[in-house]
Design a protein around this nucleic acid. Structure first.
Lengths: 183, 183
DNA sequence: GCCGTATAGTAACGTATGTTATTATAATAT
DNA sequence: ATATTATAATAACATACGTTACTATACGGC
């Protein structure tokens, strides 16, 4: 009946995601994206009503990416909280642009940090349960403090205001964990 | 000899600062700024070589503003660290755009967070000395941890991921302070 | 009161943005 | 083979950006 589609919605989204990842979300414009995807701007507006709609999809994909990153992160430390922190801080280092998009922008979906981390996989709840097993008095209060700390370290990593070797970070997180357990 | 200047460098800078403060740094363009200052774009380029140069001045002014904010912040709590945190977190709430510019952008002057806070006034050093007085074993390690925590709370405040009443924040900061003192 | 000159306003250039109209293309049903 | 039709490329529109050329203006020295 008609011409076959050569550029799929996925092609567009993938190209956009890689651009956002490598060059930053704000660098993804209709033209630069088209160039990256090896087509004109037309296929973009065929599959997306406008650029904002693509941005929403991109954001969702970034959440999923972070989730996978998190799951696959090697368990370098026995304490779940420490591992959680290491993964998060490393993500802020290795995926600066995605970190900015996910955790430092105006929230695209109205989803809070907590909601995002506690989605389908429920890492947060899992960690809190671990904390219970590890005999912490107030697991959710504990988690909140740890999370604030971890988030702070990650944000400072991003801006270059914090730059420790991994062993030092582990030590720092362990100290925190124990400190918060006492109170 | 010549016409008198009606729009001074300060007029430009002040207008730019207020714009950045209210609407965000990225909203300050030559035209929007001119409109705000009640003139054409010409006076801007008379006193500034280009917009980037104005951006540098703006950033410097923002640092000074934060310093003043900090100095004038009421001493709501006896513990200096807690006060420090309260001021910082409140700043992130009340001056979201300036907070972003100062603490979450690519650093304009290559100045680290620490350097900025430890400028002429030396708040940081002062706090560390207070900590010594308060009998903390490792004041600088302690300060680092507190600062990471405070920064984390402020960043989460900015994105709406943390939203406690002031009394709760005080309680949280006090708990942290004591926790870190134990270790 | 006129002249020189620094200042400010107007308008333009070149570039980039999102988006849309138009044209060309390729695959299928007939 | 031809007509139909969804797809993709080209080109354009309206807007915004930094920046600069040009023009008008107003002030101080004479």
């Amino acid at each position: 009946m008609a011409r076959k589609e050569t550029i799929t919605k996925n092609d567009i989204l993938n190209a956009a995601f890689e651009m956002a990842r490598e060059e930053g979300f704000e660098q993804v414009s209709a033209r630069t994206l088209a160039s990256r995807a090896g087509c004109s701007t037309q296929p973009i507006f065929r599959v997306y009503k406008n650029m904002e709609e693509l941005g929403d999809d991109l954001f969702t994909k970034a959440i999923a990416f972070f989730g996978a990153y998190f799951e696959e992160f090697p368990k370098l430390n026995d304490t779940p909280f420490v591992n959680l922190g290491l993964a998060y801080i490393r993500f802020s280092q290795e995926e600066q642009n995605l970190f900015r998009l996910l955790f430092l922008s105006e929230n695209r979906h109205g989803k809070s940090l907590y909601d995002m981390l506690n989605g389908k996989n429920g890492v947060v709840v899992r960690e809190i349960n671990s904390a219970k097993i590890f005999g912490c008095k107030d697991p959710s209060g504990m988690f909140m403090k740890m999370w604030i700390f971890i988030h702070g370290a990650a944000c400072m990593t991003l801006t270059g205001d914090y730059d420790l070797q991994e062993e030092d970070t582990i030590k720092l997180l362990e100290e925190c964990y124990h400190a918060f357990q006492e109170v």
